[in-house]
């Protein structure tokens, strides 16, 4: 990490999009989002290698997840209410369709799927799971909500030939 960096992301840095885009609106094409993400991955991998690049994506996803939870989600709700709120907002922002497959609230261990995922849905088979950013995003949300650290692992992805992204989400014993 560049310790000389003075930039520290704040939600306000996203600006007033409605004000700035009175005609084009607050949404854009998924192609544009992916174009930025995959060209950035290309450049980062060339400079830092695939492993380090994955770490960058996970770390930035984590920060995004925390800020998304803090600024968009209602984290005062109980778990069931929070899941409903999260599901609604992930769809509202066009991020994906969340579904819980398994939930162990005592162990804070979950299996969830994100269909029509913003990052990877429709990608051809490559044998590689692409959603490192999503892993961080989910971990960031869960950490902000529960104040516990989580290990999030993508086990199915469009990149590995599946038609939905599947994640295991487990609290890390501290």
């Amino acid at each position: 990490m560049d310790t000389n960096s003075k930039y520290n992301f704040k939600w306000g840095d996203l600006g007033d999009i409605e004000l700035g885009r009175p005609n084009l609106g607050t949404s854009t094409d998924v192609v544009v989002y992916r174009l930025m993400q995959y060209t950035m991955r290309d450049v980062l991998e060339k400079h830092w290698g695939p492993e380090k690049t994955n770490d960058f994506f996970i770390e930035s996803g984590y920060k995004a997840g925390s800020e998304f939870c803090k600024n968009v989600l209602d984290y005062s709700l109980d778990f069931d209410g929070f899941v409903a709120n999260l599901t609604m907002n992930l769809e509202k922002f066009g991020i994906g369709i969340l579904r819980i497959e398994k939930a162990d609230l005592e162990k804070l261990s979950f299996t969830l799927t994100v269909s029509e995922d913003l990052d990877c849905s429709g990608l051809p088979y490559s044998g590689v799971a692409f959603c490192d950013y999503d892993e961080g995003f989910i971990a960031g949300i869960m950490n902000f909500y529960t104040k516990k650290k989580f290990r999030v692992k993508e086990i199915d992805c469009w990149g590995t030939g599946d038609r939905t992204c599947r994640f295991t989400v487990d609290a890390i014993d501290q």
Binding site: D80, E101, K102, A103, G161
Partner: peptide, 27 residues
Amino acid sequence: FAQYKQLHSNLLHLTWQSQQIAKGDLQ
């Protein structure tokens, strides 16, 4: 196989939803 996985996933999610309904979440 993709269809089996989808069916399996649907049933898992449906089980979870039914558990939520049993707990009183009628949304």
